[in-house]
Nucleic acid binder design. Structure first.
Length: 358
DNA sequence: TCTATCGGACACTCAAAACT
DNA sequence: GTTTTGAGTGTCCGATAGAA
């Protein structure tokens, strides 16, 4: 591929992305509001329909559920803005990424991430899910998706796809989604109907949904079997992985160190600002890292004991509580092949930043 | 040949800051 | 109260590697 959006007509006949706008310029890439967990993990293109074509193609339509979006951080202090000229001298837009000078950007960032991270920036600890869900997904609520009974509500913790019951179980709209895998899709529909009637009340989904996945499945491929076989382990592992956002947020914010800056590609290199500051920062980081290392040693002695427990045991301990809204969704429906590597990746990040918890 | 994985570019969203 | 800006967070393109 060369330049421009390589988006061709969707193989499944979905509405293709815009190739070019009216002016003949390369059109922006179109994104779905919320990719399913499978596509998200695979970093592949998803669709608004559930199951998405990719999941249908791979026979994992059962696990095609909307992914959970993290809550946006709040309370981030920002430096004074430099009002740009009307002509747009500083910034062409998001896509041009022509931001103001790095000095200015760094100066703005400096108060944003102080070393003693203010504890009032509880971006993930605050129980703001209700307002968040009602606000953030307003678009999806206005425009309900086919086959998705509940568009993603984080507090539901478990979006469940059901055969379109409200509209008579109709398959996805032919106009927007002419299923090339019509037979497969019908099979999926039938299989979904064979599942136990999923709870109409969303509040109980966390408890009910995993059972539906443990039913003997008619999936012809081994993918689902593998998925089912590893449901318990994956659930436990993913449950621990779901906590990673919290750990990450807690771990990353106090330490705007090299690990943090390198983790975010969008952050401009602060090293270009000044060498003296960098040295001071390096010293601070070194000191912090020592402290964190010491803290980690203490924690590791205790955490290792808990880690030696079987993962299934951990899952059983965590699931009944159901207090964490974001825990369940990514846990159960995730295919095993996808779950394992992602966990490791998430663990790496979280474990690497763990010392910062102190 | 197909699929999984993954880095990174790009898109979307919204709170904070600036403006009226 | 409205608009603009900056950045957090998401999607997914495309390269690569491994498996079948």
């Amino acid at each position: 591929m060369t330049n421009g959006p390589p988006m061709l007509a969707h193989p499944s006949g979905l509405p293709p992305m815009q190739h070019h706008d009216i002016n003949g310029q390369p059109a922006k890439r179109k994104q779905v509001k919320n990719a399913c967990t499978n596509c998200q993990k695979a970093c592949k293109k998803c669709d608004d329909a559930r199951p998405c074509p990719r999941c249908v193609k791979y026979g994992i339509a059962d696990s095609c559920v909307n992914s959970v979006r993290k809550e946006r951080k709040k309370g981030i202090k920002r430096g004074p803005y430099k009002r740009r000229q009307k002509s747009g001298k500083f910034r062409k837009g998001r896509h041009g990424r022509s931001y103001p000078t790095q000095q200015y950007a760094s100066a703005m960032r400096a108060p944003t991430l102080p070393y003693g991270f203010p504890t009032n920036l509880n971006q993930y600890g605050q129980p703001a899910y209700d307002a968040y869900s009602a606000h953030y997904y307003k678009d999806q609520m206005v425009a309900p998706q086919y086959n998705v009974v509940n568009p993603m509500y984080p507090q539901m913790a478990y979006p469940v796809l059901m055969q379109g019951q409200g509209d008579g179980g109709a398959p996805p709209p032919p106009g927007s989604h002419p299923q090339p895998h019509a037979a497969t899709y019908q099979q999926q529909q039938q299989q979904q109907q064979q599942h136990t009637s999923l709870p109409q009340h969303y509040g109980n989904m966390v408890q009910h949904q995993p059972q539906s996945y443990q039913q003997p499945s008619e999936q012809p491929n081994g993918y689902q079997q593998q998925q089912q076989a590893s449901t318990t382990n994956a659930t436990a592992a993913a449950a621990s992985d779901e906590r990673s956002p919290v750990l990450k947020s807690e771990a990353m914010t106090p330490m705007p160190s090299a690990s943090t800056s390198s983790g975010t590609s969008s952050s401009p290199p602060e090293s270009t600002v000044g060498g003296a500051e960098e040295n001071v920062d390096a010293n601070k980081f070194a000191g912090l890292s020592q402290l964190c290392t010491a803290a980690l040693h203490q924690d590791s002695s205790t955490s290792q004991e808990s880690q030696q427990q079987p993962s299934s045991t951990v899952a059983q301990e965590q699931q009944p509580s159901g207090q964490e809204p974001a825990t369940a969704p990514a846990a159960a429906p995730t295919p095993a092949s996808d779950a394992a590597p992602q966990e490791s990746k998430g663990d790496e990040t979280s474990s690497g930043q763990e010392p910062a918890q102190q």
